[in-house]
Amino acid sequence: MNIFRLAGDVSHLVAILILLMKIWRSKSCAGISGRSQVLFALVFTTRYLDLFTVYISAYNTVMKVVFLALSYATVYLIYMRFRNSYDSENDTFRVEFLLIPVIGLSFLENYAFTPLEILWTFSIFLESVAIMPQLFMITKTGEAESITTHYLFFLGLYRALYIANWVWRYHTEGFYDQIAIVSGVVQTIFYCDFFYLYVTRGEEIRTPS
């Protein structure tokens, strides 16, 4: 554990909590892509199956359970509790265009051809593209509420901090995880355009039409 990793995890948690609190308090999920949130729930589910097989640390276990619970709570709020406010007309990104290549890649490129390793790899690849339905929705409607942009900022910051963590770990422990690093860099690149808008235009984002 190093400061970049810890800051990354905190940033990830903050992002998820911002989104959940926004939906809970406003009793609305307008402008939020339910499809992205389902993909993130799938990411956590397939990655954290090792909860049942290996014990790493109390921190690791608690965080995994928290991320799983929060991601399912978010999906529940969008599709059940506040489904009347769900903007399904603008949440139209075809997720099979992400899922099919990601499933294929996780079978081709993995650390071991075992169910758990393939699912872990699948989750890493899927996470890198899971935000695309949300970004697509913002492009389609041409706007995002400021609280939604804070969510995206912390979500992007999380993987960027993990890159610093990987550099740190390589230098101090000689540890590197090629699949996670490549996917993490790809994931962060997807946020660069958004980071630029966030910084230059302020919180509320309107894309040029």
Binding site: D9, R47, S57, M63, Y111, D177
Partner: peptide
């Protein structure tokens, strides 16, 4: 992965 340790990152 670089070693056989479990995936310790989140």
């Amino acid at each position: 992965k670089a070693d056989e340790a479990a995936h310790d990152e989140l």
